[in-house]
Design a protein around this nucleic acid. Sequence first.
DNA 1: TGCTTATACAAAGACCTTTTTAAATACTTT
DNA 2: AAAGTATTTAAAAAGGTCTTTGTATAAGCA
Lengths: 177, 177
Amino acid sequence: MVEVKIENVVASSLISREIDLEKLSCLIPDSEYNPDEHQAMLIRLKEPKSAVFLLQNGKLVCTGMKSLEEAERVVRNVCGMLESSGIKTYKEPKIEILGIVASVDLGREIDLEELREEGVIYNPEEFPGLVYRIKEGVIMVFGSGKLVCIGRKEEELKENVEKLVRNWGLENAKNRS
Amino acid sequence: MVEVKIENVVASSLISREIDLEKLSCLIPDSEYNPDEHQAMLIRLKEPKSAVFLLQNGKLVCTGMKSLEEAERVVRNVCGMLESSGIKTYKEPKIEILGIVASVDLGREIDLEELREEGVIYNPEEFPGLVYRIKEGVIMVFGSGKLVCIGRKEEELKENVEKLVRNWGLENAKNRS
DNA sequence: TGCTTATACAAAGACCTTTTTAAATACTTT
DNA sequence: AAAGTATTTAAAAAGGTCTTTGTATAAGCA
């Protein structure tokens, strides 16, 4: 059984009808807002460690979290900050998980030159990882036996890893003996 | 007792009265000679593994060797190549060792921020190693406990390492207990 | 006088490469 | 008008490049 470790979650939420970013950026210490470069205001949270984009139309995009639960806490924290700054936010805003990045250690080395499956791209001069695209996302395979998996649903992502390991015969050598 | 491992030797020698580089570069396979970029002709040897610069005035500079003995073999090999190409070389040319680079593993980690000796420069944003200049050369100290030592004489270099270890109290923790 | 060019070499840390995703504004091309 | 490109953020993987230090050589340039 391979362990799939979630390293990054991207989420979005509609938290308010409208946000005056000029005003808010003055009230939130250490926030960044440069409308000439980017339309969003950036807040970096320490707990959960994350980066939060706020848009004028009340939308929020956040990234850097390690779990779906952390995403919820980030949204909750930011809503609290806005309320404290005199901006009304929605009660229990709906959170959408946009993407998940996870890492896997298969505990064995892999000869990437041998893998010839459909959907595989491997240009070692360009990038040391082998890129495998599937309908639900991407899995990058490294010679060390580590994987980087990208998808939108945690359960789906885990299934795709197990399928890859089984179909490509990448079980850990220990498990074979 | 710390082991000092020589990684690179730079040496020079006057091996001939004069060398016609244009002619020689045509006779020596895989040599490089582009007078517009650099006045020297470059020969890379496989055994000993090294790079050799030849100048029109008969001077030779070579680098990449792992010992003084290898420097001697390089000079001897190049003289043989020149003689085979119809260029007279001196008998037993004098070889000068210009510099030696060595690595040392102290087998313990070091807190570089603590080291406050005179002659020490440590700017971790610029370079992760601490640079310690002494009269006879330079010793770079890394947090991993590894050193890179630069000097001109092998014995002197070894003495300087021992002095640094003793004076800075950097003996391996194992040797202390 | 000082810097550049080129060569080898060790150390370790930074940065780059690739992949995914939302947001919305600006700019360019079709 | 539509499509495409660019901007910013986080994270993992591993391979490459760069940083620093010393050294000879000699020609070119400021």
